[in-house]
Amino acid sequence: MECSTLLLLTLLGSLFVEPGLGQRGDVDINQWMQDKEKLIKNLEDQLKNLQQCKDEVKDLGTRLSTAVDELERQKAETEKLKQQNEVLKTRLDATETEIGKLKQNGGQTAPQIAFSASLVNLGEIYSGPCTDKTLIFKRVFSNAGNAYNMNTGIFTAPVNGLYHFTFSTYGYNTHAMGAILMKNNARQVSAYDSPSSDGSDSSSNAAVLQLAAGDKVYLELWDNGRVFDNLNGHTTFSGFLLFPV
């Protein structure tokens, strides 16, 4: 504003030092006054335009500052979104890897292996005491994969994997009653009940075994033990593949 005022005063001052004023009587004073008024009006208009330009520049500066602030905000937001995108990309890559593994495993059909049998398929039987203590379960309810041999009582693992086995035994109080789950001639778990006054006894057990292809699993009687079975299926042996390994 000070510059504008100084400019106006300078221009006004020039009005009174114009050469030739000493012969003003020879000039049309009215015309001279009109010219000066036009000049002053023109200067005032220019000052107004100058002030308007200053206001517009100031407004433009404010808008520019606001735009810069918005740009910085958007830049920060973009950086945040970029970081989130990197996290999501990492998760997506991990998910795709896992899906690939599942597809690969899914392409390999897991063998269907399961069996369940009871000791006798006709009438009733007392087994034991005997020298050959392997129990042979003749009444086969299911034998998917044909891994159980009903002639020997032995289950042979067809593939490496984790297998689940269960067994139950029943007997009377004349002898000890129970059985031992065997893996390749090595004891795993057992079920046992000694003779009691209640007339009959029962026991059961289960185990998950890791087997290699060709491993053999079967049940043996306790020494001097005896079990009983009939078509009610009191003494049983079952197993199935949980999953290959």
Rank of each mutant, 00 (worst) to 15 (best):
C130R: 06
F165A: 01
Y172W: 12
N146W: 15
F155I: 03
N160H: 14
T174Y: 12
I154T: 04
F141R: 15
D193V: 14
M182E: 02
A144K: 13
C130S: 14
T134Y: 04
F141H: 08
N143Y: 12
I180L: 02
S190D: 10
L181P: 04
P129S: 07
H175C: 03
G153S: 11
N149G: 09
T152G: 06
S196I: 10
T166H: 10
S190V: 14
T166K: 11
M177H: 05
N184P: 06
D132S: 04
I154V: 15
S196T: 13
P195G: 15
H175L: 13
A157K: 01
A157S: 03
H175K: 08
F165G: 01
V189A: 06
N173Y: 09
G145S: 07
A176W: 02
G128A: 11
F167E: 04
G161H: 05
D193K: 09
P129Q: 08
Y192H: 08
H164G: 05
R187E: 12
G178M: 01
N173A: 08
N143M: 10
Y126G: 11
S190K: 13
N173G: 13
L162N: 15
R139G: 13
G171L: 01
S142P: 08
P129L: 05
G161M: 05
K133Q: 07
V189E: 11
G153L: 05
F167I: 08
L162Y: 14
V159N: 10
T134S: 00
D193L: 14
N160W: 02
L181M: 10
N173E: 09
